[in-house]
């Protein structure tokens, strides 16, 4: 699974993208977050408050209940501030 981080989420995880193989129990964005939090102190810090985290699966905005699979590209970022 390809995972990308943007803005302060990346600052906290310390990586902009990584190729990871989560266990089969990870089936949604939400469960992926729970698993990622165990990967490093930075990841845990990035996902401390999930209410300020937005996610995209295969470059489409999704809710945290959205399913994820091994071939997906999953991105995490704060609410967008362009324009």
């Amino acid at each position: 699974m390809k995972i990308l981080y943007f803005s302060w989420v990346r600052d906290k995880t310390g990586v902009s993208n990584e190729e990871l193989t989560p266990p089969v129990s990870v089936t949604t964005v939400e469960s992926l977050i729970d698993w990622l939090k165990e990967q490093s102190a930075g990841h845990a810090q990035a996902f401390t408050d999930v209410s300020v985290i937005r996610a995209a699966v295969n470059q489409e905005h999704v809710k945290l209940q959205h399913p994820v699979g091994p071939d997906d590209e999953v991105a995490f970022f704060p609410p967008v501030t362009g324009g």
Binding site: F6, S7, W8, A56, H61, A75, F77, P78, P79, V80, T81, G82, G83
Partner: peptide
């Protein structure tokens, strides 16, 4: 176009000032 872009397009602004750099909040 501008209203939707502001909440849908994945851009993030980092502001620099004398206090340092900080991410703009939505």
């Amino acid at each position: 176009l501008i209203d939707w872009l502001k909440t849908e397009a994945p851009f993030w602004k980092l502001e620099e000032s004398e206090k340092g750099a900080s991410w703009v909040e939505a």
